[in-house]
């Protein structure tokens, strides 16, 4: 199940981009198809609209856009809806940066996380059969793992911010950051 992950700055510019795919043994590469590789930034960029909308929503609704039906038998993910991003002051819960699944495009699901500084961590989850648009497989998102992934990325990002030579909004080009993100992805997403 490949993923495309990006950190988006305030002006909608990418600060970091990465694609995670796994090599299972001697299997073929389970990454995105070439077509999707080109499309991914566009899909991600488009879903920023939804994230923006969710970010400033007074009523927390993590699942509004996700067409979630908890009664449905095919519920693939659960979201602990404990308050929206804006409610962070009132709700005694530090875990409201994670927005869960925010959007989808054909078979791709998009999850998002907003840092307190307004940086958006967005990820496209592809389907495990090297997700073409014809794929009927649904994306299974392990919410808890996903949340943990985002939180650790957040931590990494804050560490990057503390680098006096790094200016907020500049692309992160550190190879260390990249390798850590990838190892986190291996740890949480592509187990």
């Amino acid at each position: 199940m490949p993923q495309y992950f990006a950190i988006i700055g305030h002006k909608g510019n990418p600060i970091y981009e990465a694609e995670f795919s796994i090599q299972q043994g001697n299997q073929k590469n389970l990454g995105f198809s070439q077509e999707l590789k080109e499309m991914n930034p566009f899909i991600l960029h488009a879903s920023l609209d939804i994230i923006d909308d969710l970010q400033w929503q007074a009523v927390p609704s993590n699942s509004q856009y996700t067409n979630d039906n908890s009664s449905g038998s095919g519920s693939n993910f659960s979201i602990s809806s404990t308050g929206g991003f804006l409610r962070s002051k009132n709700v005694n819960n530090t875990d409201n940066c994670y927005l869960g699944k925010v959007d989808h495009f054909y078979g791709l699901a998009i999850t998002a996380y907003i840092s307190y500084g307004g940086m958006k961590f967005v990820m496209i989850h592809g389907t495990s059969t090297s997700g073409g648009s014809n794929s009927t497989n649904t994306v299974v998102i392990d919410d808890n793992a996903c949340r943990s992934f985002y939180q650790e990325i957040h931590e990494l990002y804050i560490k990057t911010l503390m680098n006096p030579f790094y200016k907020t909004g500049d692309p992160i080009s550190s190879p260390v950051f990249d390798s850590r993100v990838r190892s986190l992805a291996r740890k949480y997403l592509n187990k």
């Binding site: 996700t66 067409n67 979630d68 908890s70 009664s71 095919g74 693939n76 054909y106 649904t138 994306v139």
Partner: peptide
């Protein structure tokens, strides 16, 4: 029609959401 995710798309998502627990 390819359903991604939940099956029943006919039901207004707002309905589901707003009546969350008792919607089913």
């Amino acid at each position: 029609i390819t359903r991604y995710g939940p099956h029943n798309t006919l039901v207004n998502p707002t309905d589901i959401q707003k009546t969350s627990s008792n919607s089913s």
